[in-house]
Computed example of a mutant assay.
Amino acid sequence: MIGERIKRARAAAGLSMQALGEQVGISANMVKKYEHDQSMPSSGVLLKLATALSVRTEYFFRPAQVTLGEVEYRKKASASAKLLKKIESDVVDQAERWLSLKNVWPNFPIASFNYQPDVPVVSTLDAVEQVAAKVRTDWQLGMNPLPDLIDLLESKGILVIVSNVPQADKFDGLQAKISGQPIVVVSSHWPGCRQRFTLAHELGHLVLHGLLDESLDEEMACNRFASAFLLPEVGLFQHLGERRSNVDPKELYFLKHEYGLSMAACLYRSADLGVITEEKKRQIFIQFSKNGWRKQEPGNPYPQEQTLLFEQLVYRALAEGIVSESKAAELLQMSVMALHKQRQMLAEAV
């Protein structure tokens, strides 16, 4: 048990056995023995391991084991196996704490995701557009901008994990399941518009599962779903009109900050709905490339999204007497003293 946890935490930290051993003051061979459960670290070594791996000592003894089921990565070609391992280790650690919290509740207050739109087989991108509109209608969202996508997905039974693993530009998202509950992973290093598109894209996978005709590319369909879900047709027409010979980049910037969709995605959306021609889209993208906007769009980035659901449920369980302070501190990865200050709404000591 401890060996597997050391191995997982080392992967998450991106350390070799040699590097970890040097930080702890032991040999790489001893690290190997620990990871294969051929030897048990002393309490002193365990404390050093926890410090080097940035985990609490309770991590090594946590009983819950999580296996990610149906893992689907959206990754760029430059994403290394080492990076994906770090991401997966981080996700498994957070998922284990989710499952540990879920298991202490007599009736877990988060519903399971069970939405399936009543539509025929989806065989065109226009039909995908209609599915996105139906989801908004079924969930009573109207056609206005969605201010908090993470909160919306979590209210529908989709857990969202925000990973702090760096090198986010080489990773586009992950969807998996834990105990049958879907989870979507985004990075804390992305701008908000990229987080939102990934969240909406992964929602598209869940909603369109089993509905797509074989002739339709699933990734393309989910991209169209994400754009339509975040920026409905009526919103685009209201702001840009139905037919234009050109659009100004500043218009795309305003759309981005109203709907939480990148300028590039708004440009694609404009061409998808026929507001501008494909040729005009191509010309504008050429200008984007010359200005360096394909890598970093101009102006202020769209604010990042945050998830507070896990912390909220821990404090709720604490208030209801479902968990003790020590258990809550373990779940929140802080000391009991720090938790006590948090509960009393006291500032941290300087």
Rank of each mutant, 00 (worst) to 15 (best):
Ala111Arg: 14
Glu325Phe: 15
Glu72Tyr: 08
Leu267Gly: 00
Gly44Trp: 15
Arg343Asn: 08
Glu22Lys: 09
Arg196Pro: 02
Cys193Asn: 13
Gly3Glu: 06
Asp213His: 15
Gln175Ile: 09
Lys281Arg: 14
Pro117Asp: 00
Leu216Asp: 09
Leu174Met: 13
Ile286Ser: 12
Gln344Cys: 14
Gly274Ala: 03
Val184Lys: 05
Asn107Met: 12
Leu141Ser: 07
Arg316Leu: 14
Tyr59Asp: 05
Ser245Asp: 09
Gln238Leu: 15
Tyr315Thr: 10
Ala79Thr: 02
Phe237His: 15
Phe61Gln: 11
Ile87Asp: 02
His189Met: 06
Val131Ser: 01
Arg194Gly: 02
Val350Thr: 13
Asp248Val: 10
Ile161Leu: 09
Ala228Asn: 12
His239Cys: 04
Ala11Lys: 14
Val247Lys: 01
Glu4Val: 12
Arg196Ser: 02
Pro147Met: 12
Leu83Lys: 00
Phe254Glu: 06
Glu348Lys: 14
Lys250Thr: 14
Arg74Thr: 01
Pro120Tyr: 09
Gly157Pro: 13
Ala200Met: 01
Asn291Arg: 06
Ala12Arg: 08
Glu325Pro: 15
His36Thr: 07
Val207Arg: 01
Leu101Cys: 11
Val275Lys: 04
His340Lys: 05
Lys250Met: 09
Ser215His: 12
Lys102Ser: 14
Pro182Gly: 12
Leu101Asp: 07
Glu4Phe: 14
Ser54Lys: 13
Leu199Pro: 07
Leu141Lys: 02
Ser270Glu: 03
Pro166Ala: 04
Gly210Pro: 06
Ala264Pro: 01
Gln342Phe: 08
Asp272Thr: 02
Tyr315Phe: 14
Leu199Gln: 05
Ile158Asn: 04
Leu159Lys: 14
Trp105Asp: 10
Gly173Ala: 02
Lys75Asp: 06
Phe61Ala: 15
Ser42Asn: 09
Gly292Val: 06
Gly3Lys: 10
Arg243Ile: 15
Val104Asn: 15
Lys341Val: 02
Ile183Pro: 06
Ile322Trp: 08
Gln140Trp: 03
Gly321Ile: 10
Lys7Phe: 11
Glu311Asp: 06
Glu214Ala: 08
Ala111Ile: 14
Leu231Tyr: 00
Trp190Phe: 11
Arg316His: 12
Glu58Ser: 14
Glu279Phe: 10
Ala127Cys: 05
Phe113Glu: 02
Asn223Cys: 09
Ser270Gly: 08
Asn114Ile: 12
Glu22Pro: 10
Leu212Thr: 02
Arg243Thr: 14
Ala64Trp: 04
Val247Asn: 00
Leu46Thr: 12
Glu258Met: 02
Val121His: 05
Gly204Phe: 00
Met143Phe: 14
Gln296Lys: 12
Asp37Ser: 10
Val45Glu: 05
Trp139Gly: 00
Ala329Ile: 15
Leu309Ser: 11
Ser188Thr: 05
Leu318His: 07
Ala176Arg: 02
Ala200His: 00
Ala13Thr: 06
His189Cys: 06
Val45Lys: 09
Leu149Asp: 01
Val350Cys: 08
Lys295Gly: 13
Leu149Pro: 00
Val128Arg: 07
Arg343Tyr: 11
Glu251Leu: 01
Val336Leu: 01
Pro303Leu: 07
Val104Glu: 12
Leu20Asp: 03
Val207Ser: 03
Lys250Cys: 11
Glu72Cys: 11
Met334Asn: 05
Val323Gln: 06
Lys7Asp: 09
